[in-house]
Design a binder for these strands. Structure first.
Lengths: 151, 151
DNA sequence: GAAGAACAGTTCAAGATTCAACTACATTCC
DNA sequence: GGAATGTAGTTGAATCTTGAACTGTTCTTC
C-alpha cells in the first residue's frame, strides 16, 4: 500500500480506447490537412476560419470571437489573419463602436476559395469518417463529442 | 440540376457531429498539452515518445518505427529526439546490424520523467474524457475510434 | 557482382506557433 | 472625473514544424 491507489488509473479497456482516440485524431487531422492543402492551398485552420466567417452576419467577425470560434490563441489568429489577408481572402476593418477592435471580413475571393475547397474537403471527410460508421455509431459519436467539447 | 448532386454532402446531423468532433479534439488536445507542459515540461508528443520507448523491448526503438508509432514525420522525430536528448531523457545508439539506423533509447532520467508525469496526466485524461462518459458510451467510442484509426 | 531502386535518418531553410510583453481603448467604482 | 482594472488586438523573439534535398546503407535483380 504505497498510496498509489488514491490515484485513479485507466482500466485496460479505457487505455486502449484512449490510444485509439489519439491515433484516430492525429491520422484524421493530418490526412485531411494534407489533402486540403494540396488541393486548395488552405490549412485546416484557415478553412475553419473561412467557414466561420462565411456563416457570420455580414460575413465578418471580431477577432476575439473568431479566435474562440476556431479555438486558437489570439496571437495565432492575428498571424493567421495576416496571412489570409496577404492571400486576399480576408480583410481587416476597424470596428466603429469599439475602437480597440477589428472585424475580420471575408472577401469575395475568400468566399470563392472556400467554395472551391469545400466540395473536395467534404468528400474526404465523408470518406475518412462517416463512410466507416453505421448510423447508430454516428449517433453515439455525436453524443460523446457533445459531452467532450465543453470546456 | 447543376450537377452538384453528384457530390455527397454531409447531412445536417453529420455536420453537427463533425463540428463537435473538431471542437472536442482541439479542446482536449490543447488542455492536456497545456497541463502536461505546465506540470512536467513535456509536450504531448514527447510524452507519447517516452511512453512508446518505455513499453518497447530494451526500452529502445528504431527511429522509423518510433515515428510511425507516434505518428509524426521522420523529420519531426529527428528534431524531437534531438531535444529529448538535450534534456537527457533519450539517447541515440547506432544500430549494429543496419548501419543506416539508430536506436532511440530511454534513459533512466527519461523513465523517471515519464513516471513523474504519468500520474497527473492520467488523472487529467480521466477527468477530461472518461468521467464524462457512461460505460456504454466508452464502449461505442472504442469501436468508432477503432474504425477511424486505420489509415 | 554491379547497377539501380528503396530505405533510414539528417539537414537546411522557410514558414508557423507560442508566450510574454506591450499599446490602446473601455469599464468600473469610489 | 479619474485611478485602477479589464479587454482587444498586435508585436517580437525564441522555438517548433514542414518538406524537399541530401548522405550513406541495404535490397533487388539481372
Amino acid at each position: 500500500m504505497t498510496g498509489m491507489d488514491t490515484v485513479e488509473w485507466l482500466s485496460g479497456h479505457e487505455q486502449s480506447v484512449w490510444r485509439s482516440l489519439l491515433r484516430a485524431q492525429s491520422r484524421i487531422e493530418s490526412e485531411l490537412d494534407r489533402d486540403l492543402q494540396r488541393e486548395s492551398g488552405l490549412s485546416l485552420v484557415e478553412y475553419g476560419i473561412l467557414v466561420s466567417l462565411s456563416e457570420a452576419d455580414g460575413e465578418r467577425m471580431r477577432m476575439r470571437h473568431l479566435a474562440d470560434s476556431v479555438i486558437v490563441s489570439k496571437s495565432r489568429l492575428t498571424h493567421q489573419i495576416t496571412r489570409l489577408e496577404r492571400m486576399g481572402y480576408v480583410r481587416r476593418e476597424p470596428c466603429a463602436d469599439d475602437r480597440r477592435g477589428y472585424w475580420a471580413v471575408l472577401t469575395a475571393e475568400g468566399g470563392a476559395a472556400l467554395a472551391a475547397a469545400a466540395r473536395g474537403h467534404v468528400a474526404k471527410v465523408r470518406e475518412r469518417v462517416f463512410d466507416r460508421l453505421t448510423p447508430d455509431q454516428v449517433q453515439v459519436l455525436g453524443e460523446v463529442m457533445g459531452a467532450l467539447e465543453r470546456p
